[in-house]
Every structure is written in C-alpha cells, then in structure tokens.
C-alpha cells in the first residue's frame, strides 16, 4: 500500500525541501521505492537540493496538463535507483495546478511507489493546499521559534479540514519534525524546548534534527544529507525519523555532533 506524505510548515525557510530530500533518500536507502514531488511551482528547489537540476525536462504541470507522461517527467536519482523526483515547473505559476490533475498524478504514483513525498511550498495558498490535498500523513517541519510554531498550528488546522481525508471524516496522521534544534541553547532557556513545542501543537514528534553544518554542506553539493554524510548528526536523526515512519520504535534523542579537532579538519577539507 502506497503512502502519500506531505512535508509542510506554513512558514518558509524552516527546512521543508531539505527534509523532503533527506527523508526521501533515507526511505530509498532502506529499500523502499520513493517518489518525491516538488509542489513549489515557480520556485522549484528540490531538484537543486537533490542534484538533479540539469536533468529536468518535463515537470509536474506538464503531466497535470497532459503534455508529458508521468514516466517522461520522473527523474531517477543517480545514486539511489529506488528514488525518483517529479520536479515543479520553474516558468509557470501555481494556478496551472488543478485539483483533479494533481489527484490523477498522485493516483498514478500510488500504483507504482511505496512512498510519495509531497514537498509543499510555504504559505497557505493553492500550492500548499494542493500539496496536502491527497495526503495520508503529514510531516510538519517546525523550528523552535515562535513564528514557526504559530504557522505550524495554522497548517495543522488546515490538515484537519482541507484534505480529502478530512472531508471524508478520516484523519490525516500528523507528525512534527523539529529542525535546526540547538540543545545547548534550549538547555539555557534561550530556545523553545521540545516538550513546549509538542504541548502547544498537541501533535506527536517524528524526530529532532540538530542544527548542523552538514545540512548546508549537503545542499551545496546537491546530495541529500543522509547520502552525503550518513554518519553526521542530522543524517542519523533523519534515518531515525524514517524508521519511525516505517513503524519501528526508535528512542528519541538529539544526535550530537562529534567534534574532534582532526575530524573537523578532515571534514573541512572534504567539503
């Protein structure tokens, strides 16, 4: 049974695209067949973060409008043979997406993949509502910061009312993924604590991704962090999150950076 997951947040810049790439790659690394879809029409970036920007020929809008077949638009990852990307259009705008068209694409993907990850654009407009429309589950990416938490709450409200599942009286299963977490700052009371965020949002936790240089380094080179440096703290956190998505019970902890001097020097040179 295919699962459709939306990666959403309301607020921009919290790590939706980075997380979609990392979670998609992590699922594929565990042997699952995965399609990631970029819904950010006009401002596509998932292709860039995944290192496929020069291989885009057709996009989601071409498929929705029947200009291209789904199989023509899907780009297979060069490193992971189970991972596919459906890019967004860079030239069109979000009004070119229709509810029925997106529904058709998702239904086609369901027949061929284990997981379909929809990378939502920021905001609460058409692109964001269509990204969540057909979702079975939702990952709400949240930074430990007041504006992000507020927007996450708003998005949770939309997941409970504007999705196909919600309209049928069913529930979209929701998970909070906290990104850019700095445990030292949280311990000093300078940053919202995990428990505070979870209590406020009343939604279970999928994972805690620590603030890390490795995330930027991975996107610089166009490789999901779980592939680029599987031993890094954020990669391990994304891997744990994926195991939880797959139904495993994994104890929740904040992976920390290993900061040996040699390690740092070597990594700097490697990057």
């Amino acid at each position: 049974m295919a699962k459709v997951l939306v990666v959403t947040s309301g607020k921009g810049g919290v790590g939706k695209t980075t997380s979609t790439a990392a979670l998609g790659a992590a699922l594929a690394q565990m042997g699952e067949k995965v399609a990631v879809i970029d819904f950010d029409v006009g401002l596509r970036n998932l292709d860039l973060v995944m290192g496929a920007e020069r291989r885009v020929v057709f996009d989601l809008i071409n498929v929705v409008q029947g200009v291209a077949k789904l199989s023509q638009a899907l780009i297979r990852d060069k490193r992971l043979e189970n991972l596919w990307l459906l890019p967004a259009s860079q030239t069109r705008d979000k009004d070119a997406l229709t509810d029925e068209g997106v529904g058709r694409v998702i239904a086609d993907l369901r027949a061929n993949f284990d997981w379909i990850l929809c990378d939502s654009p920021a905001g609460i407009e058409r692109g964001a509502t269509l990204a969540m429309r057909y979702a079975d589950e939702a990952i709400i990416v949240t930074n430990p910061e007041v504006s992000s938490v507020r927007d996450s709450d708003r998005i949770i409200g939309m997941l409970d009312s504007k999705t196909v599942k919600a309209e049928r009286g069913e529930r979209v299963e929701k998970h909070v993924l906290i990104t850019r977490y700095d445990s030292a700052r949280a311990a000093r009371g300078e940053m919202l604590a995990i428990d505070d965020i979870l209590e406020i949002l009343a939604t279970p936790l999928l994972g805690i991704i620590p603030e890390s240089q490795d995330v930027l380094r991975a996107s610089n080179v166009g490789s999901p962090v779980t592939l680029n440096n599987a031993a890094s703290a954020p990669a391990r956190a994304y891997m744990d999150a994926v195991r939880r998505l797959m139904g495993e019970t994994v104890s929740m902890m904040v992976p920390v950076e290993r900061k040996g001097l040699m390690n740092r020097l070597l990594r700097r040179r490697a990057a």
Partner: peptide, 26 residues
C-alpha cells in the same frame, strides 16, 4: 542559569505568548 549566563531565559516567555495567541487563533 540566569546568574551564570547573566541573561534572562526567553524561552518561557515565548511559550507563554504562543499559548495565549494560539488559544485565541484556534
């Protein structure tokens, strides 16, 4: 912590402001 850090922990303020705001917005 406040003594050591010489700063006031701002997270409790963030938490309280959010709780009040979201109760209203919901």
């Amino acid at each position: 912590l406040r003594l050591i850090g010489g700063r006031t922990a701002s997270a409790p303020v963030a938490r309280e402001r959010l709780q009040i705001l979201l109760a209203h917005e919901r």
